[in-house]
Design a binder for these strands. Structure first.
Lengths: 132, 132
DNA sequence: GCAGCAATACTCGGATATGCGTTGTCCGAGTTTACCCGG
DNA sequence: CCGGGTAAACTCGGACAACGCATATCCGAGTATTGCTGC
């Protein structure tokens, strides 16, 4: 029960992209180097964010990644769900007669956490230097 | 990023122990059979709960496990921490100059979840049939 | 009856598989830019 | 100068390897109860 490193990479990368120019893309090499990850692995992670519609990739020379959606809209939960998936953290596959009351409690707890992550936007942390 | 099955087993077992007699222990075989787990594996999990001071084991014939602490005191978080550990769900090992603002947000979210788990006691779910 | 001994029913802990998800690496393919070279 | 072709700089995606962790399984050791046996 831990968040994966991929989520950490994704969050930090998104923070960098939010702080950067929304026009000129940033190469995956630069993003990876800053975080000390291999570029190929980071690109795998970013592909998931592309599919989630958060960022877009630019092919070719001077290519890279840049924001796609409005930066004000992107929440922590969006990123986490894109990487970790949206399935419940706790799954009781044990067959009770009815619904599992333990599962219900766990689900409530999870929703408390998600509520906070949904209410926190990436912009809340981004430095304001690029107000274009 | 998922809760382990061990946590599921631990929670269900604790619920059974809370509902059972606080004097007569329940054998691990019975506990395991009800949940469809191997007894040896379940005993490994329960050992962690013993070390956490929540239950105690009774050796020998007619042995098994029974509650140790007052059943009103045991929260979901106690059990989860005993199984999953108490380390933060999100760890940013990436060296920023200062503290990681992303980590701070994640920690807040985690605390929201923990607060709910700490406020929910096992007794809230236990059937009341065994009022001694 | 009763003391003692053995069998039985349990838990405990370590050592050891096993499967799966995370974390990477490698490479060929596709795409855009930059550059060079001949007219 | 200008157009075209080639090289370079990128991302994309699949295949594959390494590793750790969750999930067990097995077995010997320890412990308490039960039952039996002999006095």
């Amino acid at each position: 029960m831990k968040f994966t490193k991929a989520t950490n990479y994704a969050l930090h990368t998104m923070l960098m992209l939010v702080a950067a120019s929304p026009v000129k893309p940033i190469g995956v090499q630069q993003l990876a180097e800053t975080q000390g990850v291999s570029p190929t692995y980071l690109s795998k992670i970013l592909t998931r964010l592309v599919k989630a519609g958060m960022i877009e990739s630019v092919s070719g020379a001077n290519g890279g990644y840049r924001l796609f959606r409005n930066k004000e809209d992107i929440t922590f939960l969006d990123i986490i769900h894109a990487i970790e998936g949206t399935t419940s953290l706790f799954e009781c596959n044990f067959v009770h007669g009815d619904e599992c009351s333990i599962q219900a409690v766990m689900k409530e707890a999870e929703e408390k956490m998600e509520l906070h992550l949904r209410n926190t936007k990436l912009m809340d942390l981004a430095p304001m230097q690029t107000k274009v």
